[in-house]
Design a protein around this nucleic acid. Sequence first.
DNA 1: GCCACTGTTAGCAT
DNA 2: CATGCTAACAGTGG
Length: 284
Amino acid sequence: MPELPEVETVVRGLRKSVIGNKIKDVKIIFPGIVKQNSKNFKKVVSKNKIIEIRRRGKFILIDLSNGKTILAHLGMTGNFILVRASSPLNKHDHLIVRFYENHSKGSPAFGGAKELRYNDQRKFGRIKSFSTSKEENIFDLKKLGPESLNISSSDFVDLFKKRKGRIKSALLNQQIIAGLGNIYVDESLFEAKIHPSQKIDQLTPQQLKKLHQAIQKILKKAIKAGGSSIENYYNIDGEIGSFQLQHKVYGREGLACKRCGTKIKRIKISQRSSYFCPRCQKRT
DNA sequence: GCCACTGTTAGCAT
DNA sequence: CATGCTAACAGTGG
């Protein structure tokens, strides 16, 4: 679920709806999500204004007026949703950020105070805070590879030129390149006509260039569609994305390839289901 | 009921 | 060092 396009959709939603809002306090329902002393986290966050929202890889960064930043990762099933403070809690709501009423600026239908809730069925997500000025020292961010949406074609080719192993495993590795996950890797490899278990050192610079282009194209289209909603994903207004309707291979085992009609195959690579067209994506 | 599977990744083993 | 499994969790489907 939350890969780069989904996280970007959440970030854009937050930017539109909560920048400038002043946080009243934070309620932690399930402490396991907060990877920091709960009291400390609450103290750092409460009574501060949200001044900026950013994304790095699949991480969400929320900058506060006191020089601190909230770092959130959605794991597999995490979601932020903006709701009326009076609305009933949902199953798997783990954390609530409450805003002051007079700073609410949502739609007119949104009278009264609102709050941002973090929901996560599988509890793989995590949230913590750090000093904005110390960002370059934060391990979670430091280890990330270049942004898959920013990297230039030549840097991308250089990045993989020296690598071994299977192309899909490398694309999933956030330390090599940040933001891609299982869905967008499969879709990008199909677009570039590259077999997911293709050995990287057998790829030509031309193929890598094509793969770079495919990634840019797929990610941009997915962001435009508000991401892919397979089961659990929705944006901060509770709306689902629509890119799943444009998937050409992911989740389409046994169905006809949209390009050539051959049946889409599914194999396991690094323990992850990998969908591809055996005719369009030949291994070399 | 049991087992396999699911969008991620830290941590450990090889 | 690079690469590959497993576990963390909850739910669903066969």
